[in-house]
Design a protein around this nucleic acid. Structure first.
Lengths: 228, 228
DNA sequence: CTTTTGTATTCTGTATGCAGCATTTTTTGT
DNA sequence: ACAAAAAATGCTGCATACAGAATACAAAAG
């Protein structure tokens, strides 16, 4: 594992009060990103001394961040042996997708009931932009907007618990989705599903939206199952 | 706030290596219980020095446990002001119950497919014992077995993600359920629903089990909404 | 009497130090 | 030469110490 960017702390001598957000949050987000983006592969031990030095933080706040991530399910705590990056089996992923599917179906139904027209219009904007990124074959931005759309739909449901859990599952699966690079035809199929989604949402077609969201995630499993 | 039992650490002078489980887990569970059972009411600040002294632990592991619970959603971290016990609004509870309902419906369907006869028989045992506790008007044990049954059904689904999230929501709602003491007639209705449940499960009636589980939780909302 | 400002105290946030457990390496006996 | 035991090393777990921020209090001005 190569160079890892230290957190934004006194990069230079000037000690201006740069840090606006609490260090804890910064650390959590940073570690989460490192795990999602593969800087820390599954099974890797989180070496407190070493990792702390790389990030320019002492062990105490680092340990606190690790405990936080442990509760999120991204790392596993082994007594007297520290923490390791959690490894997900294909079944684990399938399980998560099953739950996520159910939650998105729920979100879709609720969204059709509670969303305002303006909110739906915003999702439409995200959708159109995603289509642009698709046409430009910009996979990274496509993925990002894809996630944003699903997150946005979850938010439309106006259910905080649903939003939280949905976000948690998305985070856990993000690492997987980074890997699953489907071929052009499957990608096109995913796009068609998204077209159906936005159509159903704008029509406030509860059952239609719920159905396509479920189907979309079911197909997502097909797309990643090979590259397990 | 009155006497709080210190963790099992050198209560006397003898320093025998009593502690078998990691302190972190012990602390997390202890704090969780304190929150659920109302020793720490919503809005209470978790005073690190004071709380640590009460429990006989230094601030470091205590802070780690608090961060863990923050990720679980039981406490809220306020920058530079520590942690406070999270306060749930009626809408929050309704939101949680909505999600929980969807998850239990899913669990019911999956359980009918994947559970072994032995596992179902075990749930039946729990059920019968719960009925006994009901007839004995033993509310505490009734509640405990009630939760156990719902947890058991979630486990039958053999979906680790579902089990985890279900457990998390149950934990968050446990504090609420402690309050919601319904009257005799509503209690009897809940019992009838449970009878339906076990019948549907033994018949492996997916739709039936799913339906009654959903209805049961919907009614649960009715039972607690008054004592918000 | 109210408001504002300066000071003191208290608590959080971070760093460091020490003890115990795990693991690895070395040594010793067969 | 191989196995088992013992020592040594490295890391985690916990406690303590220090610095900075927030709040509470007090004094002074309007």
């Amino acid at each position: 594992m190569d160079e890892i960017s230290p957190l934004q702390r006194r990069a230079d001598g000037s000690a201006g009060p740069i840090r606006r957000t609490a260090l804890h949050d910064t650390l959590v987000n940073h570690l989460r990103d490192m795990i999602i983006e593969g800087d820390l592969e599954p099974g890797t031990r989180l070496h407190e001394g070493q990792l702390g030095e790389q990030l320019g933080v002492s062990r105490t706040p680092l340990r606190e961040a690790i405990k936080y991530l442990a509760s999120e399910g991204l790392v596993e705590l082994v007594p007297s042996r520290g923490a390791i990056v959690k490894r997900f089996s294909p079944k684990d992923i399938h399980d998560m997708l099953t739950v996520l599917r159910t939650l998105e179906e729920l979100a879709g139904r609720l969204a059709c009931e509670t969303a305002t027209d303006a909110e739906i219009a915003h999702v439409r904007e995200l959708h159109d932009e995603m289509i642009d990124r698709y046409k430009a074959a910009d996979r990274l931005q496509y993925y990002k907007l894809n996630q944003d759309i699903h997150t946005a739909i979850a938010r439309l449901a106006q259910n905080s618990s649903l939003i939280d859990i949905h976000a948690m599952l998305q985070t856990r699966l993000k690492r997987i989705r980074f890997i699953g690079h489907e071929g052009p035809e499957k990608w096109a199929a995913a796009i068609r599903e998204h077209e159906e989604m936005i159509t159903a949402l704008e029509a406030r077609d509860k059952d239609g939206l719920s159905e396509v969201l479920g189907r979309h995630l079911f197909n997502a499993w097909d797309r990643v199952r090979d590259s397990l």
